[in-house]
C-alpha cells in the first residue's frame, strides 16, 4: 500500500486555520467533502465519530503528529488526507506537544486490515526525520503530493 493509494491529494491542507482539536478535525473533514471524497450529508456524522474516538484517547502520537480516525459506513474504501499546521494544533497529544502534521483516516467498518496497513505506512514514514522535516516545509498541495510520490517510489 502506498501513501497516495489512500491520501486524497485534492483534499490536502497546507495551512490549517484551526488551533484546536475539534476545529482542526472539522476543517479537514470539510476539505474531504469539498474534494468530493465524502458526502456532504455525512460531514457532521463523520466529524462527530472522529471526535468521539478522540474521547477514548488522543491520536496525537507524539513528535508533532496526530492520526485522527474513525470507522464509518459512509465509505466503502479507505479515505484519508494530510493537513499541516503552521502554528500547531492543541491536540492533547501523548507527549503534550502541539501537532503540526495530521493524517486523518476514515475506514470502512469491515476492513481492519487496510486500516492497519495505512497506519503502518504512515508510521513508517513518520519515523523518518527527513520525511517529517520535508513535509513540514511543504508550502503547497503540489509540494506535499511530490513528496508523497517520491517516498512512495522509494518504498518500492
Amino acid at each position: 500500500m502506498k501513501l497516495l493509494d489512500f491520501v486524497a491529494s485534492e483534499a490536502i491542507l497546507v495551512d490549517l486555520e484551526a488551533a484546536g482539536k475539534e476545529e482542526a478535525i472539522r476543517e479537514i473533514v470539510a476539505s474531504l467533502c469539498q474534494a468530493g471524497r465524502l458526502n456532504v450529508a455525512d460531514q457532521e456524522s463523520v466529524s462527530r465519530a472522529i471526535l468521539n474516538r478522540e474521547q477514548l484517547g488522543s491520536t496525537g502520537i507524539g513528535q508533532g503528529v496526530a492520526v485522527p480516525h474513525t470507522r464509518h459506513p459512509t465509505v466503502d474504501r479507505l479515505v484519508a488526507t494530510v493537513a499541516l499546521s503552521r502554528g500547531g494544533v492543541e491536540f492533547a497529544a501523548l507527549d503534550n506537544e502541539p501537532v503540526y502534521i495530521l493524517f486523518l483516516l476514515i475506514s470502512p467498518p469491515n476492513q481492519p486490515g487496510d486500516h492497519l496497513r495505512a497506519l503502518e505506512n504512515i508510521s513508517r514514514h513518520l519515523k523518518d526525520e527527513r520525511f517529517v522535516s520535508f513535509l513540514r516545509q511543504a508550502k503547497t498541495r503540489e509540494n506535499v503530493v511530490e513528496l508523497l510520490e517520491e517516498y512512495d517510489q522509494a518504498a518500492l
Partner: peptide, 12 residues
C-alpha cells in the same frame, strides 16, 4: 514506541 508498534500492522 507506539510508532514502532504501529509499523507491525499486526492483524487478528
Amino acid at each position: 514506541s507506539i510508532m514502532s508498534l504501529l509499523t507491525m500492522a499486526a492483524e487478528k
